[in-house]
Design a protein around this nucleic acid. Sequence first.
DNA 1: TTGTACGCGTTATCAA
DNA 2: TTGATAACGCGTACAA
Lengths: 355, 355
Amino acid sequence: MKLRSATLMDVAREAGVSKATVARVLSASGYVGEETRQRVEAAVKSVGYRPNVMARGLRTQRSLTIGHLLIEITSNPFFAHVARAVEREALANGYKTFLFNHNKNSEQERFGVERFIERQVDAVIFTYPVDAESIAMLRAADMPVVQIERQRTADTHAVLVDNVAGIEAAMAHLLQFGHRRIAFIGGDPALFPHPGVRARSLEEDRLHTYLDALRGAGVAIDPDLVRLGEYVRLEDGSDVEGYGHARALLALKDRPTAIIAGCDVLAGGILRAAYEAHLRVPDDLSLVGFDDTIAGQLTPRLTSVAQPMAELGLTAFQLALASIEDPDIAPRTVTLAPSLVIRDSTGPVPVRATR
Amino acid sequence: MKLRSATLMDVAREAGVSKATVARVLSASGYVGEETRQRVEAAVKSVGYRPNVMARGLRTQRSLTIGHLLIEITSNPFFAHVARAVEREALANGYKTFLFNHNKNSEQERFGVERFIERQVDAVIFTYPVDAESIAMLRAADMPVVQIERQRTADTHAVLVDNVAGIEAAMAHLLQFGHRRIAFIGGDPALFPHPGVRARSLEEDRLHTYLDALRGAGVAIDPDLVRLGEYVRLEDGSDVEGYGHARALLALKDRPTAIIAGCDVLAGGILRAAYEAHLRVPDDLSLVGFDDTIAGQLTPRLTSVAQPMAELGLTAFQLALASIEDPDIAPRTVTLAPSLVIRDSTGPVPVRATR
DNA sequence: TTGTACGCGTTATCAA
DNA sequence: TTGATAACGCGTACAA
């Protein structure tokens, strides 16, 4: 048998006052006699009253809940960190978040949006949106939306990362160490369609910055050193995407002395290929990761372009909250800077290769 | 301006019937005329009606939501996988989950429990519970509780893992390869207080099984080879717990030829220490992880005792659901079997060491 | 077969 | 300073 927990009415009875008075005491608004206030507060304790957020939400039309749609929290620690940051900020403001994983599948994303609407969330955050249609559904329901990392449509808030600056920092670091044969393993622009809001997609930003940095250093571009694909492809828990690309690169007659990876998980696969080829990192090969998620847990610890995951989540929630409090504010786009974290996987170009 | 979404009343108006009739159509219960049903269904589409889960919950005293309290989703992929499995099964049954991270802090745990009670969750799952008091609060509110991995109190459901079988499998594997100097880096029983329900704590189970296996193989126990502490201790994203222990072990005059780690993250630190000592794994040192989380992403890919994370989550939700549907069922304890996943980090004992 | 009316636990308005 | 009372959106017992 399930016994209901104490309600406002129970407190009122216990204190010998009306529901309205109890409500006033709890919301600390309106005039309440000092003596009554104390009686009510005592009653609240004695019956163990806890407000019912559902009932409150029904009345106020606010669920104090926001929805967070993401790719898949287990596929890349990046998502877990961003989700955690959103949750932290939400909690600090009296909110809770609902998570939903869509696996880059637009039907699943749509399904998640429907669940969120049913549950009356006050706003929805995407990391990142797959289908513009999902955003349109939420706009139709007048729900504030924030897009993290990739901006599909221009009509909502967005929190982005300056990928150009990230790759520039990584390239400068490697060039300074004397590397000239630098390979790039990253996301394929064709697999991540251009949303149309910004001039270049995230993948294009990174790729072009890599090419520009080489040109800037007077290095001829070798197409063999550019390998594009997915960011995460696991088989039996092992990354096979970075592994496969790295095997191909290391088998080249004139193999690269350094590799930039589009994500730390990819970099894990690259390290495995290097180990099997009996190459030591960074002595024989330098490696830079991206995200700074598992970088420190790999061997050697990876130099990596750190995404500002905590700030991404925090800013996204704050934008959502701003629109909850005033639905009419104009959409804002915030771009955050990544930072290069230098660890043990990068070093001077091998002597052999400088000849 | 925030416009309310369509309600039952709107549908009723549109279809020219009463709210009750619409409700009957939607719940597919009670008698409804065929012609009316069609009119109602058409109206539902035309106004874009979506049930309001909060209002429904207020009426039915069911939120279709369960709370999941865990240590910290970003600290170990184990938690993310278990949480995902709970979520998957919840979703399949019309439920959503709320996550809450308590960082092994009983006040935070308490705080989370309060948030869950306020939000009227229908049950709470712990991975794992810190303080018996939190469970007591939920029992007082008549909420079903499921404990995963560690059982603090006997009055709720629990889903456990057979740690004895896990360590036995790992030890048998290493002994078969001829290893005799096998080190153990694991959780310190003193840091994870014994809950009192079972004869031995998780940490005691693992440690004793390790010792028993050695004795069973006629190997004298060397206290220098046993190192106990935390499971995860990250500094700048790198595991320093396993790293520190491994450095001590590898500095021994007669160093171990194999190490069992209490968790994959620890194993990551061990690999780093081995790499710095210019030892190749498994040629010079064999290593077995635990959990099978990042095992495949490390180099070499780790042989690891896989926890049945998907089954843990699935079973936990099913037990919770069973108690939601019938609050009077007796608490059940389900113990699941781990399995040894053999990859590239274990091999025959080095010849040098067999002399 | 359909409609009326009440209550779930709040908040908010209006009188007193 | 306090107390009735009307919503919020839904489900359901009961009446028609």
